[in-house]
């Protein structure tokens, strides 16, 4: 229990730091802003109580919000994907498969992990970018931003699984 808490606490700190100090500073073409802190919500143990997943997602969203002066936006998107996470997992998992508790790439296999990442990231970015503009005018401009940033985020998250938070 203690080890688990330390592990997720450090994951929290590292991901928030990397998000606000590295990825929020990449101002590439004015469209792309990857949000990799989604990884934290994705990697929470599968048997963790749902209230813990929701509250921790709320906290990481709030932390990113405070740093990027966008109070409420990341919080909303993070809580949203925390709530739909069990559904996403149920949809992409075969019934025969025995799921490991830790949904990292090394444990779950590449295909499962990539589809998990893609669905979670696209959902998160979709909610995030539309909440940010707070309008459906310019629908396709926003959709374009959603997909460009999603591709980048998915790439970074999958790549990160070969480097840190492997198990």
């Amino acid at each position: 229990m203690g080890r688990l808490a330390i592990k997720y606490f450090s994951m929290f700190v590292v991901l928030v730091a990397v998000q606000v100090l590295v990825f929020n500073q990449i101002q590439f073409s004015g469209y792309i802003n990857p949000y990799v802190y989604v990884l934290f919500i994705m990697l929470l143990p599968l048997n963790a109580p749902r209230y813990a997943v929701l509250l921790l997602s709320f906290l990481i969203g709030l932390a990113v919000d405070v740093f990027s002066n966008s109070l409420g936006i990341h919080t909303f998107a993070a809580v949203f994907i925390a709530y739909v996470r069990p559904l996403v997992i149920r949809v992409i998992t075969n019934r025969e498969e025995e799921l490991n508790d830790y949904p990292g790439l090394a444990r779950t296999g590449p295909i499962w992990f990539i589809s998990y990442t893609s669905i979670m990231v696209v959902l998160h970015h979709f909610v995030l970018f539309y909440i940010e503009v707070f309008t459906f005018s310019g629908f396709f401009t926003t959709l374009y931003r959603v997909f460009l940033s999603s591709i980048f985020s998915i790439f970074v998250i999958v790549l990160s699984q070969f480097i840190i938070f492997r198990d």
Binding site: R50, L55, F58, G72, T75, V79, F80
Partner: peptide
Amino acid sequence: FLLFLVLEVISVVFI
């Protein structure tokens, strides 16, 4: 679901 609603309402109030 209730917790989800409460947290989302807090976020919307923030926004």
